[in-house]
Simulated assay, not measured.
Amino acid sequence: MFEEIRNKYLYNKTQIIVLNKQGLVIDSDDIIYQITPQTSIADFHPFFETILSLIDLNEKEYTFSCIHLDINSKKTSLDIIFNSGSNDLNPFLIFIDFTKHYNNFQSIAQEKNESVLSFHLSDLKNQQLESEKNFKNKFLANVTHDIRTPISASLWFLGMLEKSEINAHQKELIDLLKETNIHIKELVDDILDLSKIEKGLIEIEQKPFDLKSTLDQIEKLISHKAVTKGIDFKLEIDENLPRNIIGDKKRFIQIIINLLDNSVKFTKEGTVLLSVTRDKVIKNNSILMIKVSDTGTGIKSNFKEEVFQSFKKLHNSKKIEGLGLGLSIVSNLVQLMNGKIDYTSIVNVGTTFVIELPLQIKK
């Protein structure tokens, strides 16, 4: 009798979704909504992006009341239970359909929905930030001297091997190993830079440097990468640019190289363009307008608030390497140099990053 009552009154009102620790859907009974297996739960609806930050919290359970979903023209009002699982239990979600109940008390439900969502999203955001901070600190403990030293040693040995008598196939293998080691070293450097920025340990230097030769140096570095990938790289420089300026040359190069590396990475064909012009002069400061444009994959509009966040990858492709730190470092460095950064993007057309950077003109 109990089973008969349960099937009659509860079967069509509850749905169970089982996840793995990466937030991918393992199984769903699809009672209320159809959810494709092996896809991220965050792809099902933006609300579930917040769920991903809770998965690492073992044996925690949360109830989200009166969540309104409108998917494929099907509108529901659900109570959602999330259990983060444990070592022996996968994370799972339970949808409980209270659409009819909440519709009967629409005004009360709406007020409750707004207050509850506001509370939970604020709480989840704090937990997510804390989780990211803990992850980063734990990761940093393993990537300082203990990783940099063997990488440097490996590169030295590979350099010695290159000078020995080797055949073409052996040289190809050595080149591959060098690229891998250099990539790991760049990741380590990015993480350490981000940590220093957040701890306030990076100071912006004010030293004179030659702007034209610096841009030529950047052009040589990026041109090789672009040619290797089979795309064009162009550099456009305003004739009115001051030659000698005062600022942090190292960070200036780092900002532009990170943006250009990002553009080359996401551009399969077409052009990457670096444009540097002088926008205006204010109190002996030359405001440089730096634009990095590409014909790459573009950035989805729903990532607008996340583009400059740490450890945020704007793609799901395993073929594109990186930890999602480049744009975060750029944004932080631009702010430290009293500049501004923004971007425009169209998916499958391209992206343009624009930086306004004040640099003092050397007299």
Score class of each variant (00 low, 15 high):
31 I>P: 02
59 E>G: 00
304 K>C: 04
149 T>I: 09
266 F>V: 02
8 K>W: 10
58 N>K: 12
161 L>R: 07
220 K>H: 11
71 I>H: 12
239 E>N: 13
328 S>K: 05
154 S>H: 13
1 M>W: 06
267 T>S: 09
93 L>E: 10
58 N>R: 10
357 L>D: 00
5 I>F: 12
162 E>M: 11
28 S>H: 03
9 Y>F: 15
55 I>V: 14
246 I>G: 05
354 V>G: 00
96 I>A: 07
288 L>D: 10
42 A>H: 05
296 G>P: 00
302 N>A: 09
79 D>N: 14
31 I>H: 03
226 A>G: 05
283 K>P: 01
167 N>Y: 03
51 I>Q: 04
250 K>Q: 14
160 M>Y: 05
196 K>C: 05
107 S>M: 08
135 F>K: 01
94 I>R: 13
216 D>S: 14
70 D>L: 15
307 V>G: 04
246 I>W: 10
88 D>H: 12
31 I>Q: 12
87 N>C: 11
162 E>L: 15
46 P>L: 06
137 N>A: 06
235 L>V: 02
363 K>D: 11
286 S>Y: 04
267 T>D: 00
109 A>E: 04
326 G>M: 00
236 E>K: 10
18 V>W: 10
99 T>E: 11
154 S>L: 10
70 D>E: 12
239 E>G: 01
86 S>W: 04
37 P>R: 07
286 S>H: 04
360 Q>G: 03
121 L>G: 13
153 A>M: 13
214 T>P: 07
105 F>M: 11
47 F>A: 01
318 K>V: 03
60 K>F: 14
111 E>I: 02
213 S>W: 04
337 M>N: 07
39 T>D: 09
